[in-house]
Design a protein around this nucleic acid. Structure first.
Lengths: 348, 348
DNA sequence: GTGAAAGCGCTAACAG
DNA sequence: CTGTTAGCGCTTTCAC
């Protein structure tokens, strides 16, 4: 067990003052060659770890972080993100960090732009945002950059300059995972339908990436002939589309829904008693959990939105308070959820 | 956005001194009714959050935590635990917390006792331990308690008095999860073998709990007749036992291995070309990962030992530094791992 | 180029 | 019972 050193100790050992030690440690210059040498000699001898609490205390500055995300009353997918924010607000308030959520309408570019304008005027220290709309995000991010506001993204991995980091999942892989799971529980060369359910198509890059991964998996299987058909459907047209998927001339063995709207498909399957149709989709919405427990949905893939937001905020806080580096990208594990392990995730 | 208040602010608002405010906040008494009233009035008005950095800085005490766990060179299961320790050591050293690992031999009660004796003499502030041996653990924990050393447990949930908390998983549930996964990929009323592979039987409560959950799941399925046979096998006898499981007169459709030694079974299955036998087991050991990727193992259940240790340590640190409460029990999510999502867990 | 000193917010010791 | 004061470790300002 080694002794703990403070700046004062080092100053004494090197025969200089605390101020000089500090200048050396932070490379602030204005140090004579001799002093520099004496201090570095000591530093090399011992294992000095600055006391991060003290360092941060000195900096009595308050930090302000805004989170820009879709309104969870419009799309329940975003509810856990809000919970992540609430958790972070409580956790970090005691350290002088204020976190504030700002909501936009998930299908309305205009509200996205407006809300970002508002945030821009507030000039917080950092913004964590769900960049649903590519073009508009590019514009707004540049404005943030001009004001030296740090921007982090979560959930949607748009390749954009000037952002500090991204927290989310690898969507291609998540598509492959869905495919791997389905393959295990369906017969060889089955007929599979991919359904992209979304009100608008702002989510389309997301969904396409998942589809690519899904198809990639089945393409790799040798001597096989799975029939995979893709459908784009607005939520409102879904019933019609499903009717035709299960019409006399067609039928489906399994369905992969690329969004959290899988409960809509589950409802249809349950009502039509299509008990043999395998179903896989995304996210732990109330309705999805219900259908999972009833085994209408076989698997859910957990995108962990709460953790995404919390982690994104945590990175920023550690950066501000303790100068910790932020990784440019953190891809979270992709959790497979069944009716059996769901509870262990909900307890959290 | 609300203003941030300090003790000084409150003192001014209440017309008393900082000392008095501190006494009120910490209920240290020795405060006149009038002063008490004035201060509480102010506290009710505003939302005061003490600056935890400052509070902790004042307390210049160093904390010492010992982790007692099996030697990972004897059983690779414990390697990630060690990694969790290393991560925590680096993370928390800057806050004046020293964390030190102590290893015992996983099959040797004696070494467990000896190592705990050594730790006891060091008299750290807290001990995080993997309580492999029930009886001996009870004895040692009482000795820790006498010295006011906080004890936390991880991995093995022995019901023991005088411990601060437990981090681990619900083993019964993990057995059910294994069952649910197998059921999806085997034919109805298949023959299933449960194999408890372990050198000694110190792990037996662990394994039995998993078996209970596993059987519970199949018992619940109506109108079914799955044939489930349990085998206890030392690692050294495993080949013989497997030979008899797959002898002419018997055969198995699926195997559930209740420990991380599933790779031993995988090796057998691969060498005998038993391609149709489904296999599920525990933990992300190198060998297990290899067989998972080759699809010899169908599923692994991830017990997240690294996270268990890190979280256990994190609780202790937050308790020491910031007085955060420690939950008496935290059950981690039970992750389902396939050849497709394994990489997303390894990147971490 | 360097040291001395002040102060971040909180706690604890001490004098009154 | 209460106010003042010193000091945790670090940073920053200000004389010299």
């Amino acid at each position: 067990m080694m002794k703990k050193y403070t700046i004062k100790n080092i100053a004494e050992l090197a025969g200089v003052s605390k101020g000089t030690v500090d200048r050396v440690i932070h490379k602030r210059g204005k140090v004579s060659a001799l002093a520099l040498e004496k201090v570095t000699a000591v530093l090399n001898e011992i294992d000095y770890k600055p006391n991060l609490l003290a360092r941060s205390l000195k900096n009595t500055k308050d930090y302000h972080i805004c989170v820009v995300l879709p309104d969870y009353t419009k799309d329940a997918f975003w509810l856990p993100c809000y919970e992540g924010i609430v958790a972070a607000v409580n956790e970090f308030a005691s350290f002088g960090v204020f976190i504030e959520p700002f909501f936009f309408h998930p299908n309305d570019v205009h509200s996205f732009v407006e809300v970002n304008k508002k945030v821009l005027e507030l000039a917080p220290d950092a913004v964590l945002l769900a960049p649903l709309f590519y073009k508009e995000t590019v514009g707004i991010i540049n404005k943030y950059a001009l004001k030296n506001i740090i921007v982090s993204k979560f959930n949607n991995q748009l390749e954009i300059e000037n952002t500090k980091n991204f927290v989310g999942q690898d969507l291609f892989k998540s598509g492959r995972i869905a495919a791997g799971l389905l393959q295990m529980i369906i017969k060889k060369n089955a007929t599979i339908d991919i359904i992209h359910v979304d009100e608008d198509f702002n989510n389309s890059i997301h969904m396409q990436e998942k589809e690519k991964g899904f198809r990639d998996y089945f393409d790799e299987i040798e001597n096989s002939d799975y029939k995979i058909v893709t459908h784009n459907s607005k939520q409102s047209d879904l019933a019609n589309n499903l009717d035709s998927i299960f019409s006399d001339s067609f039928t489906s063995d399994a369905i992969f829904v690329t969004t959290s709207k899988v409960y809509e498909v589950a409802e249809f399957i349950k009502s039509k008693n299509l008990n043999n149709v395998k179903l896989i989709g995304y996210d732990l919405l109330e309705e999805n959990i219900q259908y999972l427990k009833e085994n209408v949905i076989d698997f859910l893939i957990h995108q962990n939105p709460k953790k995404q937001v919390y982690l994104g905020l945590n990175y920023l806080v550690d950066f501000f308070l303790f100068n910790k580096e932020i990784p440019s990208k953190s891809l979270l594990p992709i959790d497979i959820i069944t009716s059996e392990n769901i509870d262990t995730y909900l307890e959290n």
